[in-house]
Computed example of a mutant assay.
Amino acid sequence: MVKLVLMHKADSVYEDVPETVYDFPKSYLKAAREAVGDWVVYYEPVKAGPRGYFAVAQIAEIIAKPGVPDRYLALIKPGTFLEFDQEVPRLVEGRPLEASLTAVDGTPKSGGAVQLAVRRLAEADFARILNIGLREDLEAHEAGRYDPNGYQADEGAEIFRRPVLERLTRRPYRDVAFRRRVRAAYDYRCAISGLRLRNGGGRPEVQAAHIRPVERMGSDSVRNGLALSGTLHWMFDRGLVTVAEDMTILVSRNKVPGDVVARLIMPDRKLSLPADRHNWPHPENLRWHRENIFGQVMTDEAMPWG
Rank of each mutant, 00 (worst) to 15 (best):
14 Y>T: 14
150 G>C: 04
87 E>C: 14
189 R>W: 12
281 P>V: 12
45 P>A: 06
129 I>R: 00
282 H>P: 09
195 L>Y: 15
107 T>N: 14
277 R>Y: 15
146 Y>N: 09
83 E>Y: 08
107 T>F: 12
199 N>Y: 06
21 V>H: 15
97 L>E: 01
3 K>L: 05
228 L>Y: 03
289 H>M: 13
21 V>G: 08
142 E>P: 04
10 A>Y: 07
261 V>N: 05
58 Q>D: 08
5 V>G: 05
41 V>N: 04
90 R>F: 03
172 P>S: 06
291 E>D: 10
18 P>V: 08
62 I>C: 09
170 R>H: 15
210 H>C: 04
169 T>V: 13
25 P>K: 12
280 W>T: 07
80 T>A: 06
70 D>E: 11
179 R>K: 14
263 R>E: 13
198 R>W: 07
60 A>S: 13
88 V>H: 00
47 K>P: 02
149 N>T: 04
300 D>W: 02
143 A>D: 03
17 V>D: 07
167 R>N: 01
4 L>E: 06
4 L>F: 03
209 A>M: 07
77 K>I: 06
184 A>C: 06
290 R>A: 06
24 F>Q: 02
189 R>V: 14
151 Y>V: 01
306 G>T: 09
182 V>G: 04
200 G>N: 13
209 A>P: 02
12 S>L: 09
184 A>L: 06
62 I>G: 02
254 N>R: 09
306 G>H: 08
49 G>D: 01
120 R>M: 15
4 L>Y: 10
133 G>S: 03
9 K>I: 12
51 R>E: 01
197 L>Y: 03
138 L>T: 01
10 A>M: 10
105 D>H: 05
185 A>H: 00
175 D>H: 09
16 D>Y: 06
246 D>F: 03
112 G>D: 15
211 I>P: 01
191 A>D: 07
11 D>Q: 13
77 K>V: 03
168 L>G: 11
